[in-house]
Design a binder for these strands. Structure first.
Lengths: 146, 146
DNA sequence: ATACGTGCAAAATGTTTGCGGCTCA
DNA sequence: TGAGCCGCAAACATTTTGCACGTAT
Protein backbone atom coordinates (compact mmCIF):
# COMPACT_ATOMS: atom_id res chain seq x y z
CA UNK A 1 0.00 0.00 0.00
CA UNK A 2 1.16 3.53 -0.72
CA UNK A 3 1.60 6.25 1.89
CA UNK A 4 -1.75 7.84 2.68
CA UNK A 5 -2.04 11.55 1.96
CA UNK A 6 -1.28 13.41 5.19
CA UNK A 7 -4.33 14.17 7.26
CA UNK A 8 -3.22 17.80 7.43
CA UNK A 9 -3.85 18.21 3.72
CA UNK A 10 -7.23 16.58 3.99
CA UNK A 11 -8.18 18.77 6.95
CA UNK A 12 -6.94 21.99 5.36
CA UNK A 13 -8.87 21.38 2.18
CA UNK A 14 -12.03 20.73 4.10
CA UNK A 15 -11.53 23.83 6.25
CA UNK A 16 -10.90 25.97 3.17
CA UNK A 17 -14.06 24.66 1.54
CA UNK A 18 -16.00 25.60 4.64
CA UNK A 19 -14.69 29.14 4.47
CA UNK A 20 -12.27 28.99 7.38
CA UNK A 21 -9.16 31.12 7.23
CA UNK A 22 -5.77 29.69 7.97
CA UNK A 23 -4.52 31.13 11.24
CA UNK A 24 -1.25 30.30 12.94
CA UNK A 25 -2.85 28.80 16.02
CA UNK A 26 -5.09 26.44 14.13
CA UNK A 27 -2.28 25.36 11.85
CA UNK A 28 -0.09 24.52 14.84
CA UNK A 29 -2.81 22.42 16.45
CA UNK A 30 -3.51 20.58 13.21
CA UNK A 31 0.16 19.87 12.57
CA UNK A 32 0.61 18.55 16.08
CA UNK A 33 -2.41 16.28 15.78
CA UNK A 34 -1.14 14.95 12.48
CA UNK A 35 2.08 13.90 14.14
CA UNK A 36 0.24 11.66 16.62
CA UNK A 37 -0.59 8.02 16.16
CA UNK A 38 -3.20 8.03 18.90
CA UNK A 39 -5.41 10.27 20.99
CA UNK A 40 -4.23 13.41 22.80
CA UNK A 41 -6.02 15.41 25.51
CA UNK A 42 -6.51 19.18 25.29
CA UNK A 43 -3.99 19.61 28.07
CA UNK A 44 -1.42 17.51 26.26
CA UNK A 45 -1.95 19.51 23.09
CA UNK A 46 -1.53 22.78 24.96
CA UNK A 47 1.59 21.58 26.78
CA UNK A 48 3.28 20.22 23.68
CA UNK A 49 2.57 23.44 21.80
CA UNK A 50 3.91 25.53 24.70
CA UNK A 51 7.10 23.51 24.55
CA UNK A 52 7.48 24.32 20.83
CA UNK A 53 8.14 27.61 19.11
CA UNK A 54 4.50 28.46 18.49
CA UNK A 55 2.69 29.21 21.76
CA UNK A 56 -1.05 28.62 21.47
CA UNK A 57 -3.58 29.63 24.11
CA UNK A 58 -5.92 27.17 25.80
CA UNK A 59 -9.00 28.81 24.32
CA UNK A 60 -7.67 28.38 20.82
CA UNK A 61 -6.87 24.73 21.43
CA UNK A 62 -10.44 24.07 22.55
CA UNK A 63 -11.96 26.15 19.75
CA UNK A 64 -9.94 24.40 17.07
CA UNK A 65 -10.80 21.02 18.53
CA UNK A 66 -14.48 21.97 18.43
CA UNK A 67 -14.36 22.99 14.80
CA UNK A 68 -12.53 19.87 13.76
CA UNK A 69 -14.90 17.59 15.64
CA UNK A 70 -17.90 19.37 14.11
CA UNK A 71 -16.44 18.88 10.65
CA UNK A 72 -15.83 15.23 11.36
CA UNK A 73 -12.08 15.65 10.99
CA UNK A 74 -11.37 14.79 14.59
CA UNK A 75 -12.81 12.07 16.78
CA UNK A 76 -13.51 12.47 20.47
CA UNK A 77 -12.50 9.56 22.67
CA UNK A 78 -13.33 9.08 26.35
CA UNK A 79 -11.28 6.44 28.06
CA UNK A 80 -12.92 6.41 31.46
CA UNK A 81 -10.80 8.91 33.36
CA UNK A 82 -13.05 11.87 32.66
CA UNK A 83 -10.60 13.51 30.26
CA UNK A 84 -11.61 13.85 26.62
CA UNK A 85 -8.99 12.90 24.07
CA UNK A 86 -8.93 13.59 20.37
CA UNK A 87 -7.48 11.89 17.31
CA UNK A 88 -7.52 12.23 13.54
CA UNK A 89 -10.37 10.80 11.53
CA UNK A 90 -9.49 9.74 8.00
CA UNK A 91 -11.92 9.76 5.08
CA UNK A 92 -13.81 6.55 4.42
CA UNK A 93 -12.92 5.10 7.77
CA UNK A 94 -9.31 4.42 6.85
CA UNK A 95 -7.02 3.73 9.82
CA UNK A 96 -10.06 3.38 12.05
CA UNK A 97 -9.10 1.87 15.38
CA UNK A 98 -10.24 1.40 18.95
CA UNK A 99 -8.50 1.49 22.32
CA UNK A 100 -7.31 -0.73 25.09
CA UNK A 101 -6.34 0.94 28.37
CA UNK A 102 -4.14 -0.91 30.85
CA UNK A 103 -5.68 -0.74 34.31
CA UNK A 104 -2.23 -1.02 35.84
CA UNK A 105 0.12 1.22 33.84
CA UNK A 106 -2.55 3.33 32.08
CA UNK A 107 -0.86 2.66 28.76
CA UNK A 108 -3.03 3.25 25.70
CA UNK A 109 -2.93 0.53 23.05
CA UNK A 110 -4.77 1.00 19.75
CA UNK A 111 -6.14 -1.97 17.83
CA UNK A 112 -8.17 -2.72 14.71
CA UNK A 113 -10.52 -5.57 13.88
CA UNK A 114 -12.63 -5.90 10.79
CA UNK A 115 -14.98 -8.47 12.29
CA UNK A 116 -15.68 -6.12 15.19
CA UNK A 117 -16.67 -3.41 12.71
CA UNK A 118 -18.89 -5.87 10.88
CA UNK A 119 -20.66 -6.94 14.05
CA UNK A 120 -21.27 -3.33 15.06
CA UNK A 121 -22.79 -2.56 11.65
CA UNK A 122 -25.01 -5.61 11.98
CA UNK A 123 -26.16 -4.65 15.48
CA UNK A 124 -27.00 -1.12 14.34
CA UNK A 125 -29.02 -2.45 11.41
CA UNK A 126 -30.86 -4.91 13.65
CA UNK A 127 -31.82 -2.13 16.09
CA UNK A 128 -32.94 0.15 13.27
CA UNK A 129 -30.22 2.67 14.01
CA UNK A 130 -28.37 4.73 11.42
CA UNK A 131 -24.86 4.60 12.81
CA UNK A 132 -22.67 7.68 12.38
CA UNK A 133 -19.75 6.72 14.59
CA UNK A 134 -18.81 4.34 17.34
CA UNK A 135 -16.25 3.82 20.03
CA UNK A 136 -14.97 0.69 21.74
CA UNK A 137 -12.84 0.75 24.87
CA UNK A 138 -11.34 -2.32 26.52
CA UNK A 139 -9.86 -2.18 30.00
CA UNK A 140 -7.56 -4.69 31.62
CA UNK A 141 -3.94 -5.78 31.89
CA UNK A 142 -1.57 -5.21 29.03
CA UNK A 143 1.07 -7.90 28.23
CA UNK A 144 3.73 -6.02 30.20
CA UNK A 145 1.61 -5.91 33.35
CA UNK A 146 0.19 -9.42 33.36
CA UNK B 1 -36.43 -16.95 33.06
CA UNK B 2 -37.07 -16.11 36.71
CA UNK B 3 -36.77 -12.70 38.26
CA UNK B 4 -33.15 -11.94 39.05
CA UNK B 5 -32.35 -11.22 42.70
CA UNK B 6 -32.44 -7.46 43.15
CA UNK B 7 -29.14 -5.81 42.70
CA UNK B 8 -29.68 -4.01 45.99
CA UNK B 9 -29.41 -7.28 47.89
CA UNK B 10 -26.27 -8.26 45.99
CA UNK B 11 -24.71 -4.85 46.64
CA UNK B 12 -25.63 -4.76 50.32
CA UNK B 13 -24.17 -8.18 50.95
CA UNK B 14 -20.94 -7.23 49.26
CA UNK B 15 -20.76 -3.95 51.19
CA UNK B 16 -21.42 -5.74 54.49
CA UNK B 17 -18.66 -8.24 53.74
CA UNK B 18 -16.28 -5.38 53.10
CA UNK B 19 -17.10 -3.87 56.47
CA UNK B 20 -19.18 -0.93 55.28
CA UNK B 21 -22.02 0.25 57.48
CA UNK B 22 -25.45 0.90 56.12
CA UNK B 23 -26.09 4.63 56.23
CA UNK B 24 -29.23 6.36 55.07
CA UNK B 25 -27.53 8.25 52.26
CA UNK B 26 -25.86 5.23 50.76
CA UNK B 27 -29.05 3.19 51.02
CA UNK B 28 -30.98 5.89 49.16
CA UNK B 29 -28.42 6.04 46.35
CA UNK B 30 -28.35 2.25 46.01
CA UNK B 31 -32.14 1.98 45.97
CA UNK B 32 -32.40 4.67 43.33
CA UNK B 33 -29.78 3.00 41.15
CA UNK B 34 -31.56 -0.32 41.46
CA UNK B 35 -34.73 1.26 40.09
CA UNK B 36 -32.96 2.30 36.85
CA UNK B 37 -32.72 0.27 33.70
CA UNK B 38 -29.88 2.34 32.32
CA UNK B 39 -27.13 4.76 33.27
CA UNK B 40 -27.64 7.85 35.43
CA UNK B 41 -25.30 10.82 35.96
CA UNK B 42 -24.30 12.05 39.41
CA UNK B 43 -26.40 15.15 38.81
CA UNK B 44 -29.43 13.08 37.91
CA UNK B 45 -28.98 10.95 41.01
CA UNK B 46 -28.72 14.02 43.21
CA UNK B 47 -31.76 15.67 41.61
CA UNK B 48 -33.96 12.61 41.85
CA UNK B 49 -33.02 12.13 45.48
CA UNK B 50 -33.70 15.79 46.24
CA UNK B 51 -37.16 15.34 44.75
CA UNK B 52 -37.83 12.41 47.09
CA UNK B 53 -38.16 12.34 50.85
CA UNK B 54 -34.53 11.53 51.54
CA UNK B 55 -32.28 14.48 50.69
CA UNK B 56 -28.73 13.37 49.96
CA UNK B 57 -25.80 15.73 49.51
CA UNK B 58 -23.67 15.87 46.39
CA UNK B 59 -20.57 14.71 48.25
CA UNK B 60 -22.31 11.59 49.46
CA UNK B 61 -23.55 10.80 45.97
CA UNK B 62 -20.02 10.95 44.61
CA UNK B 63 -18.54 9.06 47.54
CA UNK B 64 -21.07 6.25 47.27
CA UNK B 65 -20.55 6.06 43.52
CA UNK B 66 -16.81 5.79 44.09
CA UNK B 67 -17.15 2.95 46.58
CA UNK B 68 -19.52 1.03 44.35
CA UNK B 69 -17.30 1.43 41.30
CA UNK B 70 -14.26 0.30 43.28
CA UNK B 71 -16.13 -2.80 44.44
CA UNK B 72 -17.18 -3.54 40.87
CA UNK B 73 -20.87 -3.11 41.75
CA UNK B 74 -21.29 -0.10 39.51
CA UNK B 75 -20.03 0.55 36.01
CA UNK B 76 -18.88 3.93 34.76
CA UNK B 77 -20.07 4.88 31.30
CA UNK B 78 -18.94 7.86 29.23
CA UNK B 79 -21.17 8.68 26.34
CA UNK B 80 -19.23 11.49 24.73
CA UNK B 81 -20.77 14.53 26.40
CA UNK B 82 -18.19 14.78 29.15
CA UNK B 83 -20.59 13.61 31.83
CA UNK B 84 -19.91 10.32 33.61
CA UNK B 85 -22.89 8.04 34.04
CA UNK B 86 -23.24 4.99 36.21
CA UNK B 87 -25.23 1.79 36.10
CA UNK B 88 -25.58 -1.46 37.99
CA UNK B 89 -23.18 -4.32 37.29
CA UNK B 90 -24.58 -7.79 37.91
CA UNK B 91 -22.50 -10.80 38.93
CA UNK B 92 -21.21 -12.99 36.13
CA UNK B 93 -21.92 -10.39 33.51
CA UNK B 94 -25.68 -10.92 33.58
CA UNK B 95 -27.71 -8.16 31.94
CA UNK B 96 -24.54 -6.78 30.42
CA UNK B 97 -25.35 -4.23 27.74
CA UNK B 98 -23.94 -1.38 25.69
CA UNK B 99 -25.29 1.95 24.53
CA UNK B 100 -26.53 3.75 21.48
CA UNK B 101 -26.88 7.53 21.71
CA UNK B 102 -29.07 9.37 19.21
CA UNK B 103 -27.19 12.32 17.75
CA UNK B 104 -30.48 14.14 17.20
CA UNK B 105 -32.63 13.60 20.30
CA UNK B 106 -29.87 12.44 22.68
CA UNK B 107 -31.96 9.44 23.64
CA UNK B 108 -30.05 6.58 25.24
CA UNK B 109 -30.84 3.10 23.92
CA UNK B 110 -29.30 0.03 25.55
CA UNK B 111 -28.61 -3.11 23.52
CA UNK B 112 -27.07 -6.54 23.97
CA UNK B 113 -25.28 -8.81 21.52
CA UNK B 114 -23.57 -12.06 22.32
CA UNK B 115 -21.51 -12.12 19.14
CA UNK B 116 -20.16 -8.68 19.97
CA UNK B 117 -19.03 -9.98 23.34
CA UNK B 118 -17.40 -12.97 21.67
CA UNK B 119 -15.51 -10.81 19.19
CA UNK B 120 -14.26 -8.55 21.96
CA UNK B 121 -12.98 -11.55 23.93
CA UNK B 122 -11.25 -12.85 20.81
CA UNK B 123 -9.62 -9.49 20.08
CA UNK B 124 -8.36 -9.22 23.66
CA UNK B 125 -6.88 -12.71 23.48
CA UNK B 126 -5.22 -11.97 20.14
CA UNK B 127 -3.60 -8.82 21.51
CA UNK B 128 -2.43 -10.60 24.64
CA UNK B 129 -4.61 -8.47 26.88
CA UNK B 130 -6.35 -9.69 30.01
CA UNK B 131 -9.68 -7.93 29.68
CA UNK B 132 -11.39 -6.73 32.86
CA UNK B 133 -14.19 -4.67 31.37
CA UNK B 134 -15.22 -3.01 28.16
CA UNK B 135 -17.55 -0.39 26.82
CA UNK B 136 -19.11 0.08 23.41
CA UNK B 137 -20.88 3.28 22.36
CA UNK B 138 -22.67 3.75 19.04
CA UNK B 139 -23.75 7.18 17.85
CA UNK B 140 -26.25 8.00 15.12
CA UNK B 141 -29.94 8.38 14.40
CA UNK B 142 -32.48 6.41 16.36
CA UNK B 143 -35.55 5.02 14.54
CA UNK B 144 -37.70 7.98 15.67
CA UNK B 145 -35.26 10.53 14.24
CA UNK B 146 -34.43 8.90 10.91
C1' DA C 1 -11.14 47.34 5.41
C1' DT C 2 -13.38 43.88 7.65
C1' DA C 3 -14.57 39.61 9.16
C1' DC C 4 -12.29 35.88 11.13
C1' DG C 5 -8.66 34.22 14.41
C1' DT C 6 -6.21 34.59 18.82
C1' DG C 7 -4.88 35.16 23.74
C1' DC C 8 -5.99 36.45 28.29
C1' DA C 9 -8.70 36.18 32.08
C1' DA C 10 -13.13 35.33 34.04
C1' DA C 11 -16.93 32.22 34.32
C1' DA C 12 -19.30 27.90 34.09
C1' DT C 13 -19.49 23.06 34.85
C1' DG C 14 -18.36 18.62 36.91
C1' DT C 15 -15.89 16.41 40.67
C1' DT C 16 -13.16 16.01 45.04
C1' DT C 17 -11.91 17.20 49.68
C1' DG C 18 -11.77 19.22 54.63
C1' DC C 19 -14.17 19.29 58.56
C1' DG C 20 -17.55 19.41 62.20
C1' DG C 21 -21.62 16.98 63.59
C1' DC C 22 -24.55 12.68 63.32
C1' DT C 23 -25.52 7.68 63.45
C1' DC C 24 -25.23 2.86 63.15
C1' DA C 25 -23.30 -1.29 65.25
C1' DT D 1 -18.87 4.81 72.73
C1' DG D 2 -16.49 5.22 68.61
C1' DA D 3 -15.59 4.24 63.76
C1' DG D 4 -17.61 5.14 60.00
C1' DC D 5 -21.26 8.21 57.50
C1' DC D 6 -23.19 12.62 56.25
C1' DG D 7 -23.84 17.44 54.50
C1' DC D 8 -22.07 21.86 53.70
C1' DA D 9 -19.00 24.71 51.54
C1' DA D 10 -14.61 25.45 49.72
C1' DA D 11 -11.21 23.72 46.61
C1' DC D 12 -10.05 21.67 42.12
C1' DA D 13 -9.83 20.43 37.28
C1' DT D 14 -11.56 20.82 32.83
C1' DT D 15 -13.95 23.32 29.42
C1' DT D 16 -16.44 27.55 27.73
C1' DT D 17 -17.08 32.43 27.01
C1' DG D 18 -16.43 37.77 26.72
C1' DC D 19 -13.66 41.01 25.05
C1' DA D 20 -9.88 43.58 22.94
C1' DC D 21 -6.42 43.11 19.68
C1' DG D 22 -4.11 40.86 15.63
C1' DT D 23 -4.10 39.01 10.97
C1' DA D 24 -5.45 36.85 6.59
C1' DT D 25 -7.98 37.79 2.55
Amino acid sequence: MSTAPPWTAFANERLANEGFRRGGGRAAVIDLLDAQECALSAQEIEDQLKAGTRKVGRATVYRVIDELVDLGLLGRVELGDGIARFERVFPEGAHHHHHFVCSNCEKLVPFEDEELERVLRRVARREGLVMESHEVTLRGRCPDCS
